[in-house]
């Protein structure tokens, strides 16, 4: 529409130069000319990324799980088979760690909820608004440190010459160290240590949103403290509980290094079973792929069922 203007000569800012350069104008007009083109340009990269980088690996994994062998030696074609999937269901060495992982993660999720709920409640309802950030930061900082370092820190705490054993010995409760390490106990302590943040944040934000006058109104109507908690606070923080539990459960099932370091032979997790199929140089990738697929499908289904039970619709996960 604007008439073709003659631009006067003289130094211009970069943007001025860009906006009036013939090349840019024609590129802009052809790429951004219509609403549809703008949407395509905006959507292309994220959608291609989501499909190629997020969905691609999962579908490829599912695909490989039906191969008879992978990686393939040169010139060899794969044939499709369900052997890798069958292997899971007939081998106790595989399905026992699988169910152990699910049950263990479930128990830990519940334990984390019970531990963290009072913390979140205290933060959201009893700390003055102006100081909440400070109190929250105090518990956030340890979570910024990586999985390996924090797992190592737990090792130091629970070792035979670790702080707890030394303290107990000093108090005269025990004479020889309790072997905490390499048991389900040490693993549980470690995983709760790693995941509690993912419970704390959703709970905190759910509890923080409950208006204070809600409780006051209930108190006014004669509801005692416990009744108020069961009838008002707990139902209103349901969304936070649901998100927190799902996140913690999914993350807990996915740990590999922590069980290897803190766990023992009786607490082998499924992640180790999966990893072992890749560690050896044999063509066991389809088995690993099948195991991962089984775990993915199971955990996501359990999470979805749990969210459904908790009355959350499937919109978003957080």
């Amino acid at each position: 529409m604007p008439p073709q203007e003659e631009y006067s000569t003289g130094s211009r800012s970069f943007w001025s130069w860009l906006a009036t350069s013939k090349v840019y104008q024609s590129v802009s007009a052809s790429l951004l000319g219509t609403k549809k083109r703008r949407l395509v340009l905006l959507a292309a990269v994220p959608i291609i990324w989501a499909i190629v980088a997020n969905l691609g690996p999962l579908f490829k994994m599912l695909d490989i799980s039906f191969y008879d062998a992978y990686p393939l030696s040169k010139g060899r074609e794969a044939t499709y088979t369900i052997a890798a999937w069958r292997e899971f269901f007939v081998t106790p060495v595989y399905y026992i760690p699988f169910f152990r992982t699910l049950i263990f993660s479930g128990i830990l999720t519940f334990a984390t909820l019970v531990l963290v709920y009072p913390v979140a409640y205290f933060l959201a309802r009893h700390v003055p608004k102006s100081r909440q950030m400070l109190f929250l930061l105090l518990v956030l900082i340890p979570f910024w440190v990586g999985e390996i370092i924090r797992t190592y820190a737990i090792m130091i705490l629970l070792g035979n010459n670790g702080a707890i054993n030394i303290a107990l010995k000093f108090l005269g409760i025990i004479d020889r160290p309790i072997p905490f390490m390499y048991t389900s106990f040490s693993l549980g302590i470690g995983i709760v240590y790693l995941v509690s943040l993912y419970m704390l944040l959703p709970l905190y934000s759910a509890l923080e949103k409950i208006p204070t006058n809600m409780n006051e109104a209930a108190a006014d109507l004669g509801a005692g403290p416990w009744r108020r908690f069961w009838r008002i606070t707990l139902p209103l923080s349901k969304d936070g509980i649901a998100s927190g539990c799902v996140l913690v459960f999914l993350i807990a099932t996915g740990f590999y290094a922590t069980p290897v370091i803190l766990g023992g032979p009786s607490s082998t997790m499924f992640a180790e079973s999966i990893a072992n199929t890749f560690n050896v140089a044999a063509d066991r990738w389809p088995t690993g792929a099948a195991f991962s697929s089984i775990m993915l499908i199971t955990t996501l289904t359990l999470a979805a069922v749990f969210l459904k039970i908790m009355g959350r619709r499937g919109k978003g996960y957080l």
């Binding site: 499909i51 690996p57 992640a271 990893a275 991962s292 993915l296 978003g316």
Partner: peptide, 26 residues
């Protein structure tokens, strides 16, 4: 699209790692 983009945030770590390992190989 939102669910697809944020999908990696909820995948258990080991599964994400294995899937990416297989994918990069292919």
């Amino acid at each position: 699209v939102f669910a697809l983009i944020t999908l990696p945030a909820v995948l258990p770590g080991i599964i994400s790692a294995i899937a990416l390992r297989i994918y990069s190989q292919t």
